[in-house]
């Protein structure tokens, strides 16, 4: 417990100094952030922006077979992702 207490003391000292931060560690590549926040702000009026032609189609959308087949970029993952161990 004593060594743990020391560790906690130095951990707190580090936290108080607060010189760390993730920016240098995990977000070195600023490009990764894109403008996510800005894009989100632009979508915040979704309630009005999507008052759309889609909603005014003549018929209820019947569920068609093709709507059950994923056709997006998931194909880029192919079968390459391996199931996690223990699954």
């Amino acid at each position: 417990m004593n060594s743990k207490r020391l560790l906690i003391g130095s951990a707190l000292a580090g936290a108080i100094a607060a010189g760390l931060g993730f920016a240098q560690a995990a977000l070195a590549d600023d490009a990764k952030e894109k403008c996510y926040g800005i894009a989100k702000a632009g979508q915040n009026d979704c309630g009005t922006a999507t008052h759309s032609c889609a909603g005014l189609a003549k018929k209820d959308n019947a569920p068609d077979e093709w709507k059950y087949v994923a056709k997006g970029t998931c194909t880029k993952l192919g079968g390459k992702l391996k199931p996690p161990a223990g699954k």
Binding site: L7, A11, G14, A15, I16, L20
Partner: peptide, 13 residues
């Protein structure tokens, strides 16, 4: 024991 101080410091930072 492990270096959770770094993690705490990052959270603080």
């Amino acid at each position: 024991p492990w270096d959770f101080g770094t993690m705490l410091g990052r959270l603080a930072g």
